[in-house]
């Protein structure tokens, strides 16, 4: 009888400690889907780039639409930007929906102290990385943009991992390493992106999903 009460007390203590310091409802499935979106995006980007580079009418790569003349973008750059933003949007929306569902199931609030803290600790390094990428483009060192996004994303994951599922830390380390390797292979950024954001999201997402949610 008493034994049970003590056991309950201990599990309540553990539950409160982790729930008050970590946001546990992050969905592994959303990681898998984000990785798949990233791979689709990378594939579309690659085929668009090939089309512009290898198309018989090679002058097309220099063709600027009316829109692009105004804003100074090439048609390819606009397409790539659209692809990138679609991937980010799809991944974010999926992440929010799946996390909301998981939070509801486990009785955790989606928007509470722990999720706010998680978002701040994830967002700050990411934002700084984003600004730094604009500087790289401004200084015309665009080749380093892909490695930089990977490295800062990795740092954001490592920083955020203290406040959510611990495996996010390893996703972070992996992306940092891939980013550093990518600095030595400028021009192949897309492949490293597909590996870091695509393959490893799927890998760690699946690890989280099958370990914690099944």
């Amino acid at each position: 009888m008493k034994q049970n009460k003590y056991l309950e007390d201990i599990s309540e203590i553990k539950n409160m400690m982790s729930r008050s310091s970590r946001f546990m409802s992050l969905s592994g499935l959303s990681g898998i889907l984000a990785g798949i979106y990233a791979l689709i995006g990378a594939f579309l980007a690659k085929s668009n780039m090939d089309y512009y580079i290898y198309s018989s009418d090679s002058s097309e790569i220099l063709t600027r639409t009316e829109f692009s003349q105004v804003y100074g973008f090439s048609a390819l750059a606009i397409k790539l930007l659209i692809i990138a933003f679609s991937v980010i949007l799809a991944a974010t929306v999926t992440g929010i929906i799946l996390t909301y569902n998981k939070a509801k199931k486990s009785g955790e609030k989606m928007w509470d102290v722990s999720s706010r803290r998680l978002l701040i600790n994830f967002g700050v390094p990411l934002l700084i990385g984003g600004l730094f990428c604009f500087v790289l483009i401004q200084q015309e060192i665009a080749g380093l943009v892909a490695p930089t996004t990977l490295i800062f994303y990795g740092l954001a994951c490592v920083n955020a991992s203290k406040y959510t599922l611990g495996k996010v830390r390893y996703l972070g380390y992996t992306n940092i390493i891939i980013g550093l390797i990518a600095t030595q292979f400028i021009g192949y950024g897309l492949y490293f992106w597909a590996l870091g954001f695509g393959v490893f999201h799927i890998f760690y997402g699946a690890l989280m999903y099958f370990k914690d949610e099944k």
């Binding site: 309540e12 729930r19 509470d112 102290v113």
Partner: peptide
Amino acid sequence: LGIMSILMVNDYADFKMLKEML
């Protein structure tokens, strides 16, 4: 038990946070 658990792993907590958690 809950109050102490939360305060063991967080530097501090305000009334609203304790209320929400518990």
